[in-house]
Design a protein around this nucleic acid. Sequence first.
DNA 1: GGAAGCATGTAAGATGTTACATGATTAC
DNA 2: GTAATCATGTAACATCTTACATGCTTCC
Lengths: 201, 201
Amino acid sequence: MSLPTTSFAVLGLLSMAPASGYEVAQRADLSIANFWPISKSQVYGELQRLENLGQVRGTDVAQDKVPDKRVYELTTSGAEQLDAWLSEPTYEPNRGRVAFLVKVFFAHRMPRDRFRKLLERYRSEAERERAYLQQIVDELDAPQAWFTRATALYGLRNAEATIAWADEVTATMPRRVRIPKDAAERTKQIFDRIPERGKGR
Amino acid sequence: MSLPTTSFAVLGLLSMAPASGYEVAQRADLSIANFWPISKSQVYGELQRLENLGQVRGTDVAQDKVPDKRVYELTTSGAEQLDAWLSEPTYEPNRGRVAFLVKVFFAHRMPRDRFRKLLERYRSEAERERAYLQQIVDELDAPQAWFTRATALYGLRNAEATIAWADEVTATMPRRVRIPKDAAERTKQIFDRIPERGKGR
DNA sequence: GGAAGCATGTAAGATGTTACATGATTAC
DNA sequence: GTAATCATGTAACATCTTACATGCTTCC
């Protein structure tokens, strides 16, 4: 029974310093949210599960003015699990879902100009993303921040690639495309010719 | 009450030709699975919902040797909904989740060599992906396949970017990195300096 | 002094995945 | 002649998101 990535993300966040659920959620938002967002409720759920599994230990802390809280810290077992997971290769089962590509795939159904607009819009969003990540990368130009910077750089490079892609397809977009009735069949045949991945799982 | 991307994906797949749930699932696997995977059970669920909403119409078809099936087709309303969705800009709420980056983010916890290996491994998976997509892009070099090709190209360009990123970080990886105790605080401060996105939703 | 935000969390619901069921048919 | 695959699907479960609850404090 293996845990999802989110569990290990929570362990990782706790490894920085003990924290309440609220604080873990906040920390997640300020660190890994760009490539692994976690909602508040998920954090609470994970903490409970991890406590039952003996990987974190929670202690109630009374406060006045604000509600009491339960502060969690890693147990040695938890730290071990985290480290084991970190150094295992990742299968990456969640292949990137990109809703926009669904639109592209069926875009022959819409007027060409409209599609052009969509693409432009998508490009501009990617550009915003790029600028945002560029800022972060710049801010993180310090040796102790190397790992964090590397994650931002990943996003940055991919944003750049997305922008380049938008330009590339905009440039090569044909005036009109006739989709034959048997498109489904044809696509099937094409994928049948391709080995290695088309097939299940 | 707006529907998720998956619903529209199913509408799109039916727009190619009427099909049973089984066939829709198969079609999904052979077409959009690389950027929007849908499991069989999800297809059945969606078809039912869409039928209740009057966007598809199902008719039972008896067969011998194989089980009877229910074949679905778009209604006019369904086609309209699909087209409306297609030409709306996409918010893209599911920001790409990349589990590997969680490992990178906490990689200061592991020996440098081990991390190097991980990165190498990740790179080689990206390379396999790249090769796979390159094949598809090559096969799809025909005018009627332009849209499909564009989607594969997206994946290809991103795979290339990922490979380049792996090389880039491998090259600049420092020998040793000391993570200060107050790393969490510092990161917070950095993100506080960055406008526009650090803050929730 | 009312609205918004902070500091805790819980509950309900939507989405997505994995495992199961079943009879025919092809594959070795 | 057993094992895998096809052609239908259903059921159970795990994950993730959105909305709600509550008392204090700060903002305008």
